[in-house]
């Protein structure tokens, strides 16, 4: 078996938020923290991304912005989204 990337507690909390905000069928624990959220991977579309941004702003008080096309990187995986959220929270 190949090693599956392990989720941190923060990542798990974010995964649960996403699953609940989008009513996804995947259990939060099954989300690969390094797989892309957009397009393939979880197969989310831009409306979902907007929903996630709303859920994140409500839960963490972090408003996601897409300056400099940064959101391509932010939404490239659960891990990078979490890093961004935690960074903004600390700022």
């Amino acid at each position: 078996m190949t090693a599956v990337a392990v989720m941190s507690n923060e990542e798990r909390e974010l995964a649960e938020l996403i699953v609940s905000a989008l009513n996804l069928e995947n259990p939060a624990a099954d989300i690969d923290p390094e797989a892309p959220l957009y397009g393939e991977g979880l197969g989310l579309d831009s409306i979902d991304i907007l929903e996630i941004a709303l859920a994140v702003s409500k839960r963490y008080g972090v408003q996601i912005r897409s300056d400099d096309n940064d959101n391509v990187r932010i939404f490239s995986s659960l891990r990078s989204l979490n890093e961004h959220v935690q960074q903004q929270r600390a700022a």
């Binding site: 907007l50 912005r65 897409s66 300056d67 959101n71």
Partner: peptide, 10 residues
């Protein structure tokens, strides 16, 4: 073409 609410505001 702003996307997120914070983008629209900015």
């Amino acid at each position: 073409r702003p996307f997120f609410p914070a983008d629209v505001r900015a």
